[in-house]
Design a binder for these strands. Sequence first.
DNA 1: AAATCGATATCGTAG
DNA 2: CTACGATGTCGATTT
Lengths: 244, 244
Amino acid sequence: MDLAEALEKIMSGLGYGRTIIVVGRMHAHYAGRSTSWLAEGDRLLIIKSDKSILTHRPTGYESVNWQPPGVVINAQITEEGLVLECNRKSPPEILRIVITEVYSAEYYRLVDNGEFIIHAREEDMKAAIINSPDIVEPGLRIVETERRIGDEYIDILAVDSSGQIVIIEIKRKRATCRDVEQIVNYATQVEKELGRKPRKILAAPSLSKEAASLNTVLRVEYKCFSPRLAYEILSKKKGLDRFL
Amino acid sequence: MDLAEALEKIMSGLGYGRTIIVVGRMHAHYAGRSTSWLAEGDRLLIIKSDKSILTHRPTGYESVNWQPPGVVINAQITEEGLVLECNRKSPPEILRIVITEVYSAEYYRLVDNGEFIIHAREEDMKAAIINSPDIVEPGLRIVETERRIGDEYIDILAVDSSGQIVIIEIKRKRATCRDVEQIVNYATQVEKELGRKPRKILAAPSLSKEAASLNTVLRVEYKCFSPRLAYEILSKKKGLDRFL
DNA sequence: AAATCGATATCGTAG
DNA sequence: CTACGATGTCGATTT
């Protein structure tokens, strides 16, 4: 396809607020928060209806150059080729893409109001424990969630069957030493504020070796709890299994 | 375009190792590290030559569903529509995309060996200071980089014109209280190990208000230093300005 | 394989 | 606007 023809497609697509797809040979330069140069190669260029722009190389799932929605796009043909200049004010950034060959250029009117539902985030794990505290320990009662301690928040504050305060820190991935230190800091603050030493429970799908030994030293308890288990609990409770 | 026709395109593209672009109406379900459901809408589906797969909605620069390179892709037509099942073994994940309508399906042979050069990362900022320590302070001499302190690393260890030890911590973004705490921890460790109180310099493009007052209290010095300045220094030193 | 750290991270939320 | 945590974070590097 001719560069002039492609430019016309791009201008029309931009004017109508369409999603534009260009396949071709191009190089790019970015300057802003960082600075990058990408030499020439065959790539896929997408300009979306919200004026976000991205280019994909033929391998790897991530885009290589991009600008988020709301940039000002200027397109013109120079001696270099079809030049797209994408400017953003805050933060000041510029992405300059030079297309030297076009294999295909087309735009589409895409309508997408599909709801996106995601489960088994840390938030969902918390919801599962609040729904079914017994999975952490029989007899556990939830007292408070998101309690502010200093300038941080404790995931869950509870009381065990013997009346002792329990701090629960949830992690959706393998817990690290950093996570152990975090819950110990919370415990120190809670003891200061409430005058009683709380139990500390780290709920995570697994525990790193170093974190495990640190746990022993610092008297932090570990409860194996995975995002998947949380999802299953929530599914049973709320009938979310229709998504499986 | 017919679903059967689109399936043929996809199968051919997969067989030839091409980059496939499908524009159409689809919905998707993901299960693996998390679980998600995306209701029907018009989207762009890309299967790359390395068999990474991604879908884009018509807004926002990020992909909504994806699988990294090396998944096993199974495509077939069922009563639901054109179904793509993308399986990964480690971690166990499955992405199931159901295409109900196809507006366009094409594949391309894309060759992209273009070199990608990126500057002004934290690493480049460190290189700039090592090259030109004077930009931090006249008379500064670099002693060591990446010195291990406990289980962490100090960006730069130096000595000032009066012979005092200087710890430099580099941040490419606005420095926060957390960063101030980090350099103070390093200083404590250095004092323990070397028996001398070091100066502490935080080199970053800006400083949050809270971090500024924390700096005063904890005697941490602040040196304004941006990725862009680092880039300019390195450009002059190494002739990298050909990229601008 | 596990852990750590940086990223043009992005994104949401609370203050 | 700023700060901070979560992310299917991803990706590279080191142990």
